[in-house]
């Protein structure tokens, strides 16, 4: 029964993985990758690690792949055309790498089979949520915290990169023809002067208009 289920899910995972590479439509590849993740989650359940399975589905299938699909949908990526392969020297390299991978895998299987280590009785407890929680917050606390700081840095970095560097006041308005131009760039006397200018930033716009560069917040106060 278990062997049958394993063959089904493993076959699904391998088939979807092949489809990821073989499909020419990027969205089909993305959908196949979701299939891989779901099949892997099923395998984790069979290995008595339900928590890992659930997290796998939530994080990979539910969050990361949604972003990938989102980007593919937004960019309107065309189907890839089949070209004549360039970089021919990569083919023998790939064969050698594949051979090394197969050798490694078979060595691991060999050494596992003949290792003197015998699994303990409570091996089915390791995948339980409370066990993972206890492990994360006692024995592996330092790696856990370091990982969370790493993630925090990534969030801050993404926000810094995505944020506009302009200081726009609440009364700022966007002029036609210009990218973005704060109202206080213009001369104080004529606030309704909506001259259209071609510029990428308000500093450049100010130079084009021949007025003072954007007023800094601290100068106002």
């Amino acid at each position: 029964m278990l062997a049958l289920l394993f063959i089904i899910f493993a076959g699904l995972a391998v088939g979807c993985a092949v489809a990821v590479v073989a499909q020419r439509n990027p969205l089909y590849s993305a959908v196949s990758l979701i299939g891989v993740f779901v099949a892997l989650a099923c395998l984790y359940v069979m290995l008595a690690a339900p928590f890992i399975a659930a997290v796998q589905v939530i994080v990979y299938a539910g969050a990361i792949m949604v972003l990938v699909v989102f980007v593919i949908m937004l960019l309107n990526v065309e189907e890839e055309e089949r070209r004549r392969p360039r970089l021919r020297f990569l083919v023998p390299t790939a064969v050698v790498m594949a051979a090394i991978l197969v050798a490694e895998t078979s060595f691991i299987m060999y050494s596992v089979r003949f290792s003197p280590f015998t699994p303990t009785d409570n091996i089915s407890n390791t995948g339980i949520t409370s066990q993972i929680g206890t492990g994360l917050f006692t024995r592996y606390l330092l790696p856990f915290e370091i990982t969370s700081i790493l993630l925090l840095m990534a969030i801050v970095g993404a926000m810094t990169l995505a944020r506009r560097s302009l200081r726009l006041s609440p009364t700022a308005r966007i002029l036609p023809g210009a990218q973005v131009l704060a109202r206080d760039v213009l001369t104080r006397g004529s606030p309704e002067d909506l001259t259209a200018i071609e510029a990428d930033s308000s500093v450049e716009a100010a130079r084009v208009l021949g007025v003072e560069p954007p007023i800094k917040r601290e100068d106002l106060e």
Binding site: V31, V38, P50, F51, A54, V57, G62, V69, F70, T129
Partner: peptide, 23 residues
């Protein structure tokens, strides 16, 4: 054991139905 996480996982996969239909 992980019934609640199971629900969250299933819900997060449900997004694809709508997103892919739209695309």
């Amino acid at each position: 054991d992980v019934a609640l996480l199971y629900v969250l996982g299933i819900t997060s996969v449900g997004v694809y139905g709508i997103a892919l239909a739209g695309w």
